[in-house]
């Protein structure tokens, strides 16, 4: 079972990296959400999997009688989910503000904080001429 989940984590990471390589900020955010879910799944898997044995101690006993599931990864994941929820919510608002204020979600066109110098403009024009027409981000 661990193997299957590991493969799933791999696929999710691949997909998220593909998304994050795009110039579109929204795609990047989707990639990030996918990546953080993959991370949670990775923690879950690395805590080893057990079938139907909740980490509960029966009444009267002081220690668990049978083997139980590892509760710590679940606690870690819960914390991580809460944190990533907050961070991603902020990132989403920020992306929206960026779209409102800067009028674009193409990260290549966000040049207000780092304006392109004359030299950089020339260099990028030369590069574009060399590498042929490039596809525009939707």
């Amino acid at each position: 079972m661990e193997v299957v989940l590991s493969v799933v984590v791999g696929i999710m990471v691949t997909a998220s990296i593909y998304l994050m390589l795009g110039r579109n900020l929204v795609k990047f955010l989707f990639g990030l959400i996918l990546l953080s879910n993959a991370a949670n799944l990775a923690i879950f898997t690395s805590g080893r999997l057990t079938w139907g044995s909740p980490p509960l101690i029966p009444e009267g006993a002081l220690v668990p009688i049978t083997d139980i599931a590892n509760a710590l990864p679940q606690a870690l994941i819960l914390t991580a989910i809460v944190i990533s929820f907050g961070l991603l919510a902020f990132a989403l608002v920020l992306a929206y503000c960026a779209y409102q204020e800067l009028g674009t979600v193409d990260t290549d066109e966000m040049r207000i904080a780092e304006p392109e110098t004359e030299f950089a403009k020339k260099a990028s024009r030369a590069w574009r001429a060399l590498s042929g027409p490039r596809d525009r981000a939707p």
Partner: peptide
């Protein structure tokens, strides 16, 4: 804390959009 934080985000987005 969580109610306040979630509502801050939700209300900000609601008012923005």
């Amino acid at each position: 804390v969580v109610v306040g934080a979630v509502l801050t985000v939700i209300l900000t987005m609601e008012e923005e959009v």
